[in-house]
């Protein structure tokens, strides 16, 4: 029984080890560089939204001219 428990504990430690071994962008997070990526993504999306709004305003004007 004791043997089984220790075997189980050993297996469990392997499982947790394997979990910790998965490589993630921890460095980027710790030195804050991930915020640069976030900034770039947000700027691009702000640009797209501004473009959509301008396009819609222009359409409003053309539709008004039509009527």
């Amino acid at each position: 029984m004791k043997y089984l428990t220790s075997l189980f504990a050993l297996l469990l430690s392997f499982v947790t080890l394997a979990q910790d071994d998965v490589e993630m962008a921890d460095t980027m997070r710790s030195n804050g560089k991930i915020y640069v990526v976030l900034g770039v993504v947000l700027i691009i999306f702000v640009g797209i939204v501004v473009n959509m709004i301008r396009l819609e305003r222009k359409l409003n004007r053309i539709e008004k001219d039509q009527a």
């Binding site: 394997a18 910790d20 998965v22 993630m24 991930i34 990526v37 976030l38 993504v41 947000l42 999306f45």
Partner: peptide, 13 residues
């Protein structure tokens, strides 16, 4: 976009 980049995600191989 914010939460997708910043939130914790499961560590999967």
């Amino acid at each position: 976009l914010y939460a997708g980049l910043m939130n914790d995600v499961p560590r999967l191989p």
